[in-house]
Design a protein around this nucleic acid. Structure first.
Lengths: 234, 234
DNA sequence: CGGAACATTGACCCATGTCAAGTGTCGTGG
DNA sequence: CCACGACACTTGACATGGGTCAATGTTCCG
């Protein structure tokens, strides 16, 4: 896979499906399902880097940007969290990133104390947490391969491609979607300036690979060509 | 901390200290201690991306480079593994990176089957694995902040600084050390070409912040200035 | 309608990549 | 012990992708 900009997209601790009995609900999922629902507005923080960890969250609707900042203001977006994703896990007692909503978002809250208790008893939960982290690590490494080695065009094409594929996985239209985040977010995610992101979008338009109805609504015209541009990958 | 280029440097599953009884050895550590010792030569692979996972390894002596490659040859070194570090963990049944010795290296081997068995029974082990991954994730994110947002000088200064600090933690001279890896490895790690790495080393020499006896022996003359150059961090 | 926030576009510049030559350093074989 | 080749590193000259700065356009909302 060429790009994996979705911090926790595969990091779901097994989505809870009431109908499908194939996978029994763990204590964690049961607890989470009863967790309090919380609504946050666009640009509001769910938590900030350095805050003491109180809860772990699962996104229900909306989207979050997860990022770190340097003192001089440079910012690296580590990923975006979408419905189903879990955010806030970590071994220290402080959050290591900022989690800021990019649009109105609802999350379900689980106190970490409850998580710790369960984990001390249930070997399966410990392994799930391990899996979750391992997946996120894999995603982060893919992103690093991207920001470390690829050209602006490869990065942007890969970003759009990942979005398209994510839609497909979720049974939505892979050829037409709304980007919830700003150019600044995309730039800070890919390690580019907003100008470069914008220019690259324009190039893709001129090549007739995409259309931009409004600046955030993307229509993919030629996904194969897009994949080729994004490529350079195993 | 400004840079953390050491993939698994903090990812040790609690170093086993026979003398200190404060921390009881887990089943994992006991098993590992009895694991087979294996010697690999410089440039030899411990495992390659895509190989089926058979063992998890702990480095005893030497150093490994862990990296991914794109089809066109571009390479991203994700980190280096030093004595005490654990490599080979992952949720899939294939290794996700190449692990290649940068100098003669000895590792202790643990079959994953043994690990899986232990983990199914022991909640503490699952949590340790989780911790290990969480630490490595944090290190990878720091590296991403580096390759994504920093200048060549910041990257190289940070790299040397991390090396110095690592030596200090291990009770060795923080002002004088041998880099086990080539300029190519450093470049592919920091997302720079070997020429840029070399030129940056030269600049640091001219600024009298370091000395290079042989091209791989670094003497740090002014660690504070180095830290300042590396900085831009929280 | 007005203004704020975001996006696009253009002109220019610079840090870093590219290409090429030159300089150690090491190990091997004569 | 020296000659040689292999390999890694350094240095220089030049090219360029993407950053910076500035002006303009677009969308949205009060």
């Amino acid at each position: 896979m060429s790009i994996q900009p979705i911090a926790l997209s595969n990091a779901r601790i097994s989505t809870f499906r009431p109908g499908a009995a194939s996978r029994p609900a763990t204590g964690f999922e049961q607890t989470l399902a009863q967790g309090q629902l919380r609504r946050i507005e666009a640009k509001e923080f769910l938590f900030a880097e350095g805050d003491t960890i109180s809860h772990v969250y699962r996104i229900e609707t909306g989207a979050l940007a997860l990022y770190k900042i340097l003192t001089d203001g440079r910012r690296q977006v580590m990923g975006f969290a979408y419905p189903g994703d879990i955010v806030g896990l970590g071994i220290d007692d402080k959050y290591t990133m900022n989690a800021q909503a990019v649009k109105p978002t609802r999350v379900r809250c689980l106190p970490v104390s409850a998580l710790r208790q369960s984990a001390a008893r249930d070997p399966a939960l410990g392994l799930k947490l391990y899996e979750t982290m391992a997946r996120e690590l894999a995603a982060t490494r893919d992103l690093m391969l991207t920001t470390g080695q690829r050209s602006a065009m490869e990065r942007v094409a890969g970003f759009l491609l990942a979005f398209s594929r994510r839609n497909q996985r979720n049974g939505q239209d892979p050829a037409s979607f709304e980007l919830p985040m700003t150019r600044t977010d995309i730039g800070d995610f890919l390690g580019l300036t907003i100008e470069t992101v914008s220019r690259t979008f324009t190039k893709l338009k001129l090549m007739h690979l995409i259309e931009l109805a409004h600046s955030n609504h993307v229509k993919v015209l030629d996904i194969d060509a897009l994949a080729e541009l994004a490529d350079g990958d195993a």
